[in-house]
């Protein structure tokens, strides 16, 4: 056995390290989407007219509602941190649950949006899609790939928050130790942030 105290042990509690690790991970997530944004930028530049034409197919109202939903969910998850810092566990749980509920609303709206596109045959491989010109095909491919990939992140973010709820219930995450909630919230903000960029790129640039 070690007969001295190792102050810099890797098994000590270190919130700073956890947060640093999370930020690095968020960095990699941003770069992951960065590759997609790069591809989008280049193809938009090469096929400006086709992208413009195709973007009129998207439903701006649904996109706007979803943006508001996600922004609100970021607010509730941020408030849950304040709540747990004040020791109000019940309030924190309610706020996280509402964040997850907002995530659900986001996905439901997304579902209706995608279904409408399927009905128009705009998913890659469908009849209408195959008749589009190359630039428009690229637009819809990127639309489905990027919003789909973002949707996957919404689901992952929601699952992380469910684990946070479990940790709070068990008392592992509490007033004195809430780094897990903070990291979960950081991830959620990232999901939100990426949508903030996807929304104007696909729905608003005319």
């Amino acid at each position: 056995m070690a007969n001295f105290v190792m102050v810099n042990s890797g098994h000590n509690r270190d919130d700073e390290a956890d947060k640093l690790g999370m930020w690095l991970f968020l960095f990699t997530e941003l770069l992951l989407f960065g590759g997609l944004f790069l591809v989008y930028t280049i193809y938009r530049y090469l096929n400006a007219d086709a992208f413009l034409h195709a973007s009129y197919e998207l439903n701006v109202i649904m996109g706007t509602v979803n943006t508001i939903v996600l922004l609100t969910s970021s607010l509730t998850v941020a408030m849950s941190i304040t709540a747990i810092q004040k020791g109000d566990t019940k309030m924190a749980l309610t706020l996280i649950w509402s964040t997850i509920a907002f995530a659900g609303v986001f996905l439901v709206i997304k579902y209706f949006e995608w279904t409408a596109k399927f009905e128009h045959g705009l998913f890659p491989g469908m009849e209408h899609y195959n008749m589009l010109e190359p630039g428009e095909k690229l637009f819809f491919f990127l639309y489905f790939f990027m919003t789909g990939f973002h949707g996957l992140h919404v689901i992952i973010g929601g699952i992380i928050l469910l684990f946070v709820i479990a940790a709070i219930r068990k008392g592992e995450t509490n007033q004195g130790k809430f780094i897990f909630l903070e990291n979960g919230a950081l991830y959620w903000h990232l999901v939100d942030l990426i949508w903030i960029f996807l929304f104007p790129l696909f729905y608003l640039i005319h």
Binding site: L24, F27, T28, E29, L32, G34, G35
Partner: peptide
């Protein structure tokens, strides 16, 4: 950390 995500998304 900084380079690997790019190949990740490209491969996807």
């Amino acid at each position: 950390v900084l380079a690997t995500p790019i190949i990740g998304i490209t491969l996807l």
